[in-house]
Design a protein around this nucleic acid. Structure first.
Lengths: 143, 143
DNA sequence: CTTGAAGCTATAGTTACTAGAGACATTAGC
DNA sequence: GCTAATGTCTCTAGTAACTATAGCTTCAAG
């Protein structure tokens, strides 16, 4: 049996985060020692590793909750899990596209910087004037 | 003079967000009408457009706060603004690199999906077993 | 002059944690 | 066996950057 600290170290999740996952119902409440400390078995370790891994891939906790409830029913068809993964893939790809556009814009700003005074600094000028900008931020979502 | 709704519409920022920016000190408290409604001049419009534009480029509000205080002192050298923009550019590039790795991983998961039952679903299997994974998530930061 | 949209304040909720306070449990060294 | 250090407990509050709700007042149009 693992204490919460060992579990955290083994899975790469921080201790308060483990308790948080329990609080929001992603992890079941574990056994307790006589002194009321949490004790985890290998199943909990596996489940937490799953969560950690999915988080590292950018899945939101709600998607992970769905995946976990799916994995508890191995007889169901795989399509639901597939759909969640595909949605996540699409989200990641959209984010990459958007960030590349931002990268272009920032690069333009930085390259153009005159290294003079603020008064003729392109960085601030570009940010202040939408006309200087290659992108259409008025329709783009923020962040 | 613009009401908050007009200002919001013109800059593409939502009304509660404008009030929020005032609350956290990014926008100065504007004049008020006799009926206590906010009234904005062209300077406020410009400042809000600057904020909106910088946000669209992914600058955190704290960086924007710094840029705004810089732009109030046009005699200063440009290097501080340049540094902020460069830091933002580096952050965006790092994020792109990371997201591309995640994209690979997700694509592998989705492609391998057997379309059978959950029991042999690669999506869930890969998430549950770090060994299946090309990436080293144990050292990678989450999100 | 009345009605409906827009504005006001204040509070709470969102996501996914993180940090702190103050008390109890466990372990290592002596 | 004792003590000190570390680990764990609960609970609350804080983070970023808003968004939403409630209950009220003001404004502009017909």
């Amino acid at each position: 049996m693992l204490t919460i600290g060992k579990l955290a170290a083994e899975t790469g999740v921080k201790v308060p985060t483990v308790r948080y996952y329990e609080q929001i119902g992603l992890l079941p409440p574990p056994e307790r020692s006589r002194g009321n400390q949490r004790l985890y078995g290998p199943l909990a370790r596996q489940r937490l590793a799953f969560i950690r891994h999915a988080r590292a891939l950018g899945f939101p906790l709600e998607a992970i909750r769905d995946l976990l409830s799916l994995s508890d029913r191995p007889e169901l068809p795989c399509s639901a899990a597939d759909a969640i993964a595909k949605a996540q893939l699409a989200a990641v790809q959209a984010r990459i596209t958007q960030l590349k556009a931002l990268e272009q814009e920032l690069q333009r700003m930085v390259v153009q910087c005159a290294h003079g005074t603020i008064a003729d600094c392109r960085v601030i000028e570009v940010l202040g004037d939408h006309g200087q900008c290659a992108q259409d931020h008025h329709t783009a979502p923020i962040d």
